[in-house]
Design a protein around this nucleic acid. Structure first.
Lengths: 153, 153
DNA sequence: GATGAAACGTTGGCGACGCCAACAGTATCA
DNA sequence: TGATACTGTTGGCGTCGCCAACGTTTCATC
């Protein structure tokens, strides 16, 4: 049996089965889908994370938001500027701690969040299409376990 | 039973179990580990991919390399410049097709690849530490299936 | 053989994401 | 009180992925 010449776009097999490679490709894939979806609403990942955190836990300082969403303090500033500029979020100084700003999600912000949620459902459906419900649960479980170690100070 | 106030760094639960979020975090995690490892060898992901493709399939044109490694043509140029600058790769014009360059991995490049391979094994070990061998196989299988749809033209 | 289409390498640019250093202002703890 | 820590902000860096445009070269079709 003769070995087939690899098709022009074949990946090196050693890479093809590497978890790091697969994770990276899966991220690129999902990032692309999500980017397209969010862009249609004029948003990006950071915006969604921040709005979701505000809606779930209520008003918070920027630093707390950063910790909750795994977004760097400095990037939180920029993203909140954009959200505030669109009236999706309100910034007001904390009277009890004059270092802090208290960030509050506005009704418009809640509505935007709902829009993004719908977009996200669509993206997940497309992304996970090849997987059964059991498969998806498996994947979530495995990735969750994987990330347990990722305890950053 | 009183509801516990969320710890300051709790993620919104709606996000916490989203495959897109998990994939994104897993990527960030692995990217960080890999970045640290590769940086210690003065390399990054693109370099590894290109060297691995060259070693596995032999000399190739830049466009073919890009297709095989899922790296954009223009980014291949830059990465190859860096590799060639370090003598890990050789660029020579293809006599049969004067549009093409033929890229060849040098002995030094093969050696670098081995170094990177070792680094990568270490990173994978750390990344996958929480998972059993069966879990890892499961993960690879699920992600591979997930990516089948990602057929880009 | 001429002509239009396609591929190639290259340059330059953009956005998302993650991260770090430094600063002034404020709070807290010894 | 003085040292230490936290907050918001600015500015910067690197990786990765992607796109548009250009001149050159090859290929297909007439």
């Amino acid at each position: 049996m003769k070995r087939q010449p690899p098709p022009a776009d074949a990946m090196p097999s050693r890479i093809l089965e590497m978890p790091t490679w697969l994770i990276s490709r899966a991220y690129a894939y999902s990032h692309r889908l999500l980017g397209e979806g969010f862009a249609s609403a004029g948003a990006r990942g950071y915006h969604y994370r921040l709005l979701a955190a505000l809606e779930e836990f209520g008003p918070a300082s920027q630093a707390a938001l950063g910790r909750r969403t795994s977004i760097d303090r400095s990037d939180v500033v920029a993203a909140l500027n954009e959200l505030a500029g669109r009236g999706l979020v309100q910034r007001s100084p904390d009277p009890d701690d004059r270092r802090r700003n208290i960030i509050t999600i506005t009704p418009a912000g809640i509505q935007e969040l709902q829009t993004l949620d719908e977009i996200l459902v669509g993206v997940q459906d497309e992304l996970l299409a090849p997987l059964s419900a059991a498969d998806r649960a498996q994947l979530v479980e495995l990735l969750t376990r994987l990330l347990e170690r990722d305890a950053r100070p």
